[in-house]
């Protein structure tokens, strides 16, 4: 019943390799990475520093160029996908422009992409509501808390309605209470919009709580050691984290991280 384009993965990496040339010699950031992400999936990338999780996300966003293998995004090369504005990217820091109000910050990609003033207004209002920041449009970034700023940056990434949302440790700098709250909101947002999300994190509970698929990675060279399809239901209240299923998945992630570390630990 489904047409071919529906069954084709949104993001597909085959034998992906990336070596950085540095002053200390070559660094093997990604080695032989194979991964397929389907439409509507929530995929977390977890692993210690230097395992290539952020690098992989940046390859998808065409901010880095792989040195080997193939990578396709929406059936295109990553750079074509970037030029087609196929994804929204959320960085670790909110990176809002201090000289723009929150609403104007959210309009930034829309201005660049040439939306009409009326549509900019409409979309900014919609995404502000989506991240629960309605009424804060006229505030400047410094008037908002860190968590609110990060929500505004998510709204900015959502504003032009790309199908893919790439998030690089977006809540890494926030405290745990704010983080829990934002995780809950992110799930609700994902359920409402049906976007495909790639999410980089350091936190095992965060990865297990959010994802339909968890990609465990290990460093030197950066590679995938385990891909876990989560058995948890789509509907996830915060206390799902106390269920045996949750603990089991978390355990498997931890095992994967430990195995990847080998003799280093």
């Amino acid at each position: 019943m489904t047409s071919e384009s529906d069954t084709q993965p949104v993001i597909e990496a085959k034998n992906l390799d990336l070596t950085f040339q540095t002053n200390d010699g070559p660094v093997h950031a990604l080695k032989d990475v194979n991964l397929a992400i389907d439409k509507g999936e929530f995929v977390s990338f977890i692993g210690p520093s230097g395992c290539g999780k952020t690098t992989f996300l940046r390859c998808v966003a065409a901010l880095e160029t792989p040195t080997g293998g193939t990578l396709s995004v929406n059936g295109m090369t990553p750079d074509e996908a970037r030029r087609n504005r196929a994804y929204g990217y959320v960085f670790q820091a909110a990176g809002l422009y201090p000289w723009r109000t929150i609403a104007k910050n959210i309009k930034l990609p829309l201005e660049i992409m040439g939306y009409s003033a009326q549509e900019q207004e409409e979309r900014a209002r919609n995404v502000l509501e989506l991240v629960d920041l309605a009424g804060f449009g006229e505030k400047f970034p410094w008037q908002l808390s860190g968590g609110m700023q990060q929500r505004a940056s998510i709204a900015r990434a959502l504003a032009f309605d790309a199908d893919i949302l790439l998030m690089d440790e977006p809540f890494g700098a926030l405290d745990e209470i704010v983080r829990d709250h934002l995780n809950e909101q992110l799930l609700a947002l994902w359920a409402r919009t049906g976007k495909t999300i790639g999410f980089v994190t350091h936190s095992i509970p965060e990865a297990v709580y959010l994802s339909t698929k968890i990609v465990v990675m290990s460093p030197r060279p950066g590679r995938i050691t385990d891909v876990i399809d989560s058995p948890l239901p789509k509907e996830r209240p915060l206390d799902i984290r106390d269920t045996p299923e949750f603990i089991e998945v978390a355990h498997r992630v931890r095992e994967g991280l430990r195995a990847g570390h080998g003799d280093d630990v």
């Binding site: 504005r85 990217y89 960085f91 422009y97 201005e111």
Partner: peptide, 26 residues
């Protein structure tokens, strides 16, 4: 990071100048 952000929007050089570099330099 801010330059990468504009790259993800596929912004042109002149857009990077007028929307980011110039206001940041004030």
């Amino acid at each position: 990071m801010q330059l990468d952000l504009l790259r993800t929007y596929n912004a042109s050089n002149s857009q990077v100048f007028w929307k980011l570099r110039l206001p940041a330099s004030m």
